[in-house]
Amino acid sequence: MSNTLTEADIAQGVEKLTRSIHEANLDQNYVLVGLRSRGDEVAERILVALAAVGINVPMGVLDISLYRDDLAHLNSNPKLEGSDLPFAVDGANVILVDDVLFTGRTVRAAIDALMDYGRPAKIELAVLIDRGHRELPFSPNYVGIELETKRLDYVDVKLKETDGMDLVEVTENRD
């Protein structure tokens, strides 16, 4: 098992993610909501891939900083970028999109944040990479890449728009 994902692996992951979202939602409308940061970039790529086959879905971004459960433990609070949901959340089928699914704490925060914008009909979860080791009872609906990691490994995701390149590296924690 390689501990690095290349640009090609990531592209393949996005493709798989797009396909499974598309196939599961042939007969219903839905919206994509990317989680800042990098989840928005993954959502953007899915959007482009869907548009290539003639499907247009609305997309929004969600900043979950104010909903994190570890703010009291941080030395400085994360910088707010703000959310942008250019559609009504009430009654929508929402697919949350993130880059990596790990403990599930971000998903918990995202669901809470989303609910403060309205009452969605359904919320699903799409992740580019599932690295395991959940601390909350969440299971993703759509997964691009399953990555085997140890609990303490550090998974560093770089995406072009944010980091200038597409690369995922897993580093072992040697402490």
């Binding site: 104010l66 909903y67 703010l71 609070n77 403060d116 914008y117 309205g118």
Partner: peptide, 12 residues
């Protein structure tokens, strides 16, 4: 938003 409150300082 209709909910103007966020939980950032919950318990403080």
């Amino acid at each position: 938003r209709s909910v103007k409150k966020v939980p950032a300082l919950k318990g403080k």
